[in-house]
């Protein structure tokens, strides 16, 4: 066969395909950057140690680290709060006031109860997403031998790229939503939402749909956050594999936006769910 690039049956394409396959096999040895040990991003978090019998994962360590950082910041900041605010206080006040006013327009006086929850979701997810972009997260780790193969295990893993974490947040969000619903509308009205006295025909179907939608909330909240952050992580790893310099930069900017958007989406959805379920159902 002739080597003709215009002929799909020519040897040219076979040779090109073989060389490309070979390049991919050898790629880890030719890339630059901190994490050149593996291109694989595992779905499950890696266990990096044990406390007694409790297996500690890298995402859990990072989660505790974020919690400590936010707590320390809150404690230090609380001592510096003044009536005439500085730049940082003004910035924080603007965010709080915006969220509080937004919530107040939807939930009226109930925002006093909802605000700590939705704001903590926002701050926690935002801080976790932003800190995950710092150098060292997912790139500093140890090499261990597993099943006869060397495997790289990072010491820190982005919290929201672990389904345990996002699922836990989503469960908390939905549980808190139902708790507030019971608190604000009472047991009778709460149950009426799901189980009508006319439990036949369309009412029964609507009740079942409502119940299913509650489970859907857990899945949508957890998988949206998890999917976006994990995809970002994969994107960044892929860009590192091309080059550790310049190439990942646009993706870092993209991830900054994604970090903020996902935190805001989780917060707003939780707020909306809380508002919807804490209002009396008019069927």
């Amino acid at each position: 066969m002739q080597q003709n690039p215009t002929d799909p049956n020519s040897e040219y394409f076979d040779q090109w395909g073989s060389s490309l396959k070979q390049w991919f096999q050898e790629k880890p040895h030719h890339t630059y950057g901190a994490d050149t040990k593996t291109e694989h991003v595992p779905l499950a978090p890696e266990v990096i140690g044990h406390i007694g019998t409790f297996p500690v994962t890298n995402s859990l360590v990072f989660s505790i680290l974020v919690t400590i950082l936010l707590s320390v910041f809150a404690i230090v900041f609380s001592r510096k709060i003044t009536v005439i605010p500085g730049k940082l206080q003004s910035f924080i006040e603007v965010i709080f006031e915006y969220v509080y006013d937004l919530g107040e327009s939807l939930a009226q006086s109930r925002i006093e109860t909802f605000f700590p929850w939705v704001m903590t979701f926002f701050l926690y997810i935002l801080a976790a997403n932003l800190l995950a972009l710092f150098p060292g997260v997912s790139t500093i780790g140890v090499n261990v031998m597993q099943e006869g193969q060397q495997k790289f295990i990072p010491l820190l893993r982005s919290i929201n790229s672990d389904l345990n974490m996002t699922l836990s947040l989503a469960l908390l969000s939905v549980v808190a939503t139902h708790f507030f619903s019971l608190k604000f509308i009472g047991v009778t009205d709460y149950l009426k939402r799901w189980f009508s006295l006319k439990m036949f025909g369309v009412f029964l179907f609507v009740g079942i749909l409502e119940l299913v939608s509650e489970f859907t909330k857990i899945i949508s909240l957890s998988f949206r956050l998890f999917g976006n952050i994990l995809a970002g992580k994969v994107l960044l790893k892929t860009s590192w594999s091309v080059s550790a310099f310049i190439v990942p930069l646009p993706f870092y900017f993209l991830e900054l936006v994604v970090a903020f958007v996902q935190a805001a989406v989780f917060m707003i959805l939780t707020l909306v769910f809380m508002v919807m379920l804490s209002e009396k159902h008019h069927s």
Binding site: F54, P55, T57, L60, S63, T67, L167, S168, L169, L172
Partner: peptide
């Protein structure tokens, strides 16, 4: 266990 741990943490 991780769900509970994360919930407590939060």
């Amino acid at each position: 266990i991780y769900l509970v741990a994360q919930a407590v943490n939060f």
